[in-house]
């Protein structure tokens, strides 16, 4: 079976992907949030496995992670919550987290569990490309999981080519030199970077993340790229409005 991520990437139109931290605002909101996001027309979901020390995240996701851990979220509990998710949800699901919890769970056991649940891919920002390729690629492949790599405005063309070669879904294009949730809109630097990547004719489509928070930034990010990912802005929405008004948020991004 073709991976759901690859199927989704074949579709016409720009993709909206939403990140949320599992276990936030409340421990058992995970399934509700996923189902609601799909109903509202979101194309792909990144389920954040919270970590005590999220190095690449700004204050919003840090706080949601701390709260989720305080609520009692664990790797095992997340897998339990997601156990029946494929009975109701059909869009691609990606687990995003940091490498240490995965390492402690056991990389093979973690991937096996993801496969059983119907997770399509993983994003582990601090699992570097060379370590992935030498130690873990076979395990990911065995369980049909796509590993998503990041590029940034500072990534050299040579390295982008290597990452493109190693990828088999999409490339996560970090919009600017920043942690998550910290930039105001997009300036010329971002536009030039988006255009530069577009002209490289990479084999994998790109989905832009970091700094997308409303309709304007979504449109700007997806002018050249296949889609965009919203994280911190959605977490902020949940913090303010709870889980009952997810549709309003999604509609504010894309009608």
């Amino acid at each position: 079976m073709t991976n759901r991520i690859n199927q989704k990437l074949q579709e016409n139109g720009k993709l909206l992907s939403i990140y949320f931290t599992a276990g936030y605002p409340s421990l058992n909101d995970t399934v509700h949030i996923i189902q609601d996001l799909e109903k509202c027309g979101v194309d792909m979901i990144e389920i954040g496995l919270p970590f005590s020390d999220p190095l690449a995240d700004g204050p919003t996701i840090q706080k949601s992670s701390t709260a989720a851990l305080g609520n009692g979220m664990t790797t095992e509990r997340l897998f339990e919550q997601l156990a029946g998710i494929r009975e109701t949800v059909s869009i691609p699901l990606i687990v995003m987290g940091y490498f240490n919890p995965m390492l402690q769970y056991g990389v093979d056991a973690f991937c096996k569990k993801c496969h059983e649940i119907g997770i399509d891919g993983l994003i582990m920002p601090d699992l570097p490309l060379n370590v992935y390729r030498s130690e873990y690629e076979e395990i990911f492949k065995k369980y049909g999981l796509i590993n998503v790599f990041l590029i940034t405005p500072q990534t050299s063309e040579e390295r982008i080519r290597i990452i493109d070669e190693a990828s088999d879904g999409f490339i996560y294009m970090v919009s600017s030199a920043s942690v998550t949730g910290s930039k105001e809109g997009f300036g010329n630097t971002q536009t030039e970077y988006f255009e530069r990547i577009a002209t490289m004719n990479l084999k994998n489509p790109q989905i832009v993340g970091f700094g997308i928070k409303d309709a304007d930034t979504f449109e700007a990010a997806t002018k050249n790229a296949k889609g965009a990912i919203i994280g911190s802005a959605f977490i902020k929405h949940l913090t303010t409005n709870g889980i009952s008004q997810i549709e309003a948020f999604v509609k504010s991004i894309r009608n």
Binding site: F51, L55, Y98, N100, L103
Partner: peptide, 21 residues
């Protein structure tokens, strides 16, 4: 026990779930 902190693999105080204590 062995884990990842601040970019390196080393002995690390952590929970069974891999959260740094």
């Amino acid at each position: 026990k062995i884990g990842i902190i601040h970019g390196c693999k080393t002995l690390l105080m952590q929970t069974d779930d891999g959260q740094i204590t």
